[in-house]
Structure formats: structure tokens, C-alpha cells
Design a protein around this nucleic acid. Sequence first.
DNA 1: ACCCGACTCTAGAACGTTCTAGTCGGATGT
DNA 2: ACATCCGACTAGAACGTTCTAGAGTCGGGT
Lengths: 342, 342
Amino acid sequence: MQSGERRTTLADVAAEAGVSVALASIVMRGAAGAGAATRERVLEVAQRLGYQPDSRARLLRSGRTRLLGVVFDVRHPFHTDLLTGLYDAAGAVGYELTLSAVTPRRDERTAIDGLLQDRCEALILFSPRSRTADLAALAARLPVVAMMRTVRQRAVDVVRTDDTRGSELAVDHLVELGHRHIVHLDGGTLPGAAERRRGYQDAMKRHGLAGLIRVIPGGSGEDDGARAAERLLPEPPTAVTVFNDLSATGLLDVLRGHGHPVPGGGGPGFHGGISVVGYDDSSFSRLAHINLTTVAQDVEALAAGAVRRAVARIEGTDVEHREVVIEPRLIVRGTSGPAVPR
Amino acid sequence: MQSGERRTTLADVAAEAGVSVALASIVMRGAAGAGAATRERVLEVAQRLGYQPDSRARLLRSGRTRLLGVVFDVRHPFHTDLLTGLYDAAGAVGYELTLSAVTPRRDERTAIDGLLQDRCEALILFSPRSRTADLAALAARLPVVAMMRTVRQRAVDVVRTDDTRGSELAVDHLVELGHRHIVHLDGGTLPGAAERRRGYQDAMKRHGLAGLIRVIPGGSGEDDGARAAERLLPEPPTAVTVFNDLSATGLLDVLRGHGHPVPGGGGPGFHGGISVVGYDDSSFSRLAHINLTTVAQDVEALAAGAVRRAVARIEGTDVEHREVVIEPRLIVRGTSGPAVPR
DNA sequence: ACCCGACTCTAGAACGTTCTAGTCGGATGT
DNA sequence: ACATCCGACTAGAACGTTCTAGAGTCGGGT
């Protein structure tokens, strides 16, 4: 039905309102230089004809797109949380977001290429897996902000949580509850894993527990946590700090299945068991049913930082540091409790 | 650093290669009409100058965008699952996806407007909350595919799961396990809720349990499920079918908290308790720790159906039905088990 | 009466591509 | 030897905006 007719253009509106295209353009984008009466008439006509500006043409001409490209991964619940914050932050400074998703069958390179063709003015990458060299090459063409990971490359901006500090918070919390045998379930080479590991190690040393440091290889998935749990069972610790929430739930599950109670799972008044602290405060970790003690990343601060950084680069008003580091926060929920003496 | 220099355009490539812009264009889009030697030379130059085509200009001229606009909600885990399938389906037929998210502070109208400005050729809306009249108005301008809900409007295409059938599957399963006192936790006016309610009612009647039909108002969030559970406790059923997974976990939680065991939560060999069946097979429901019996929507079929429908409308090769209904599948996990006689 | 500035409006170029309608040689067919 | 055709290539318009430069008009100050 609508296939035949062309969509209404600015020229149509101008003709119908009896003004020039240029004036119609002025009215539509709310610029100065149009009489009140004319303005009203043009707007009325535009409304009536269902005029919708063509952003492609607009941006083609004006050079600017005011568009920030965002690459996120559909598998990571935290990424969608972050998107919410990003929309807010971008809207506040008059920028739009264009999204490109990484999926199990669509890699980061493909996602990025899609955005480049859209001529966004900067790229914001969530936990990018690309090699530093590739990111650097990209950054030579447009501002690039990497989130949730460090990039040792001057041209690439970084906005991340202080993950070392995050792990320290987790360990401090557990030590305060009386735990000493604390294991770290690692994230290997994943973005942020090195920092989280180091935070654990530093905190253990600081508490005089250097001799009890124990790092178990893991990953980002639930099954990684479950597998790691099996390796833990022969000689169980009293507490575990985990690379992320998903892995933590996998761990929890196996622990409970083998009769190792976890605080919160034992009913009110229960004490002891193996405490587990996750990382990310993913939306599912908040589910009352999981109720995971975890290290929260400050979504709003991360989003605001990324947008501020990208916009500064675009508009050349650079003053701040290349790396923006956000303070994490410990969210104490049900999976951490006092240690029982062994 | 890159702020000063213009980005390289087709004209730059053409000049450097010593050919006309038109010929460069031919080469870049792989069209016929260029000599082999020239073709190679132009490609080499393009590579060297780091030429990246400007999709806006390209599409502005050619009219076509081969772009499908997708509106999804960041709060709905199932939506991101569906995105994965959609990228695959669109890629297979040579279309691109452009995403626009609904967030707690960014409504559907805003998300849709963003896509319209991008001049996508069709809109695919995940569980749209817009009124039928608004959808119809939209459909007058471009093909619109509504997913996961019915729309009584000829101009709007629909791709959805047979939700009535889905609820029936859930009830059938429970009845087979010996349950009779089965409650439905409702989704009110949310997309799909009416069908799921009706499926429950139909199945109950079919099993001669019309007298035991009991529908409790609920919603889509975890807290909706928790609230509903409180209303259920005074006179507990032996099983509940729930509008969606999130609400189901909220319900589960309160039930367990009040000492009502749920199958799977009572350890191996346990029998009886209140069975709970969710809806969606959201990624978190698969977590071993939640392990929810649920009705799965066929992501691939839904995605493929939506793309096929949208493309058919765009290209005018319409033959199929306006409404594509996909068969659901019951996923039996841990939260459903045999009924104990009351 | 004249000029000036402010205001409203317009013509036309520009953005980077694709598309249409060609031109130009050279091979082919008779 | 001449028309014909084909492949390689090009000039310039077109897409729907925004931007630049300037044209009218009006009122007020000298």
C-alpha cells in the first residue's frame, strides 16, 4: 500500500505551505530566522503530511552525525543494564546512540564495521575482546572508548570500574566475617580478570593471609563456575570470590548440590557454610531467589564517564585523564555470612 | 588527531587511481562494467587510503536501505535471545538490522521515532505496548511486524508463539503429574497474557477441572510474582502456571520462604510440593540454580518468521498469511513434579 | 528623503554516493 | 570497407537535507 508513494519530503512540506525549502528546514530544526505565523503554518503542514526528517540526508549535508556507536554483547546481562544508563547520558548531551550487537554468531569485528558505515563520531565498546593493536588502528580513525577493561594504548580511552579495588572489597568483607580460607575463582584472560585477581591477592596479603592465596581457573559462564566447584570440593574453603555473577551461580549450585550449605540457603538463623561473592550485580543476581552478595559496578557513573569521554574527544575539548576509573561498591546480600571455625 | 582531516571519500580514491568517481563506485560495489586491471588497482587504492563507504550517502541516492528496524526492551532477557536469531535471519537474506532499545526511561514511541529517521524499510517490534490504533497508523507508512502479541489490524503483521497452546502444554504436563488444583498467575494486559490465560482455562475445562479454575492477577516482574504468592498462601494449590519466568521466580521464592517445598528444591528423592511452570525459557531460567520448568518460544522460528514477513512486505511478494504462529515447546526442568494427594 | 539594521525569506551550492545516458575505441559480421 | 555491437569508461543529474550568501521589506533615526 505504501510501497508506491514516495515518502513525504521537506520539499513537499515547503510547497504545500508555500515557502522555500530552506525556510521549511529552518522551521523543522527550530533554528532562528522564521516568522511566528509561518513557523506555525509549516509545522501544521508537516504534521498533516506526516513528515519525518531523513536523518541520512541531514547528516550527509551537515557532516556531523551526533551519533555514538555502541557495541554490546547480548549474552552479557550487565551490558543491557549499561545500555539504559548510556541512553540517558547520551540524551543529556544531545547525542544519539546507534547499537550493534555481538552474538554467538556475530563477532566484534562485524559489529564494529556496521557502526563505521553509519558514520558515528565515536565508538563505545563494552568489554572489547579485540587485540590492542586492532583497537589502536581503529582509534586512528575515530575516538574509541573501551569499557570495563584496560587498554595500554594512548589513543584509546578507557572507562572502567576499579576492579582491583572491587576484589579487595569482597575479600575485606569476607575477612571481616571471620573467613581466612578464601579462594578466588578466576576469569582467565577475560576483560577485567587480571585486575580482579590482583585485587584478591593484594587484599589477602594485606590481611596477612598470603600463605592461603588460592586461585582456581574459571571463566565467564555458569558451567565454568560449576566445573571449578568440582575442583574445589576435595578441600573446600570457607569462602570464594568469583570473577562474575554467572560463574558464581554455577558454583553455588554445585556446592549446594553436594551438601555444602551457603548462607541464605539454610533458612533464618543459620550460620556457617561456604560464602560466595560475585561480581557485576547483574540483574539476575538481584533476584530474591539467587540473592547473591556481589561487587556492583556503578552503571550511571560508567555510562556518564564513557559519554563524557567520547564527546570530549569529538569536540576536541580534551582536559581530563585518558582513563576514567569508577569506584565499585559491595552489595551484601544473602550468600555471605560469618565463618564457622574449621 | 583525526579531527582535522576529512575522511577519505570515493572521489579521493577515484582521483588517486586515475579513474572517474562513477567507475570507482562500480568497482566498490562489485557491479559489472569495469576491467579486471582497473578493478584491482581501484581496490588497492581504496585499501591503502582506508576508504570506508558512507552508507548514508549510498542509501540516500539509491533509495533502498535494506535496513530492518528492531525495537527491543533491555529489561526483557528473552528479547536479547531473540536478537541473536534475528541477526542470523536478516543476514541470510541480505538485510541489516538497526536496533533501538526501550529502557525504563526511554519509551516505545521514542525508540520507534529514532528508527523512522534512519529510514529503515520495515519495523520489527518486540512485544509492543503501543495501542492498536498507533500501530495501524505506523503501518500505513511502512511494513510493521509485531512480535509476541496479537494485533487485530489488517495492516500489521504478527509473528508470535501460539501462547494459548503454550499454556495448554503447561497444564497438560501438570495434570499428567497428577495435579488438579492448578492456579494461573496472570499477566493482566501485557502482550500475550490474554492468550496464556485462555489456554489455561481451555485446558482446565478439557481435563474436567473447570470448577477448579483460579486466576490470580500478576505481572511481568519478580515482585509481581512475590506479591501474588502472598495471596496464594492461605489456600495453596498444588501447582501454578505463571505468565512469565521472572514472575515465576518471584513466586518460587516466597513459596520456599514459607516452607512450601518446590520439586527440585527438596533434594533428590523428594516428592510433592508445589509445582511451578514458567513461560519464555529466558536465559536465566536455564541456570541450574533456578532450573525452571517453562514453556519455550522457538527463537529461531520466530526470528525467521519475522524477517520473512518483513521482507515479503518490502519486496511486495506477499503470499503467506498475515499472522505467523509458532508452536511452543515445554521444557521440563526441576520445578515440576508429581502431585501429592491433599 | 535617505540610510541602516533587523527581520523574514529565498536561490543555489554542497554533502558522498548511485544511476542514467551517454562517448570512445576496437573487434565482429557481411 | 562499412555499419554494428560490445565492453570500458565518464559526465552530470539525482537523492533530501543544511548552509551560505544575499534579496526584500519595514520601521525608525538622522
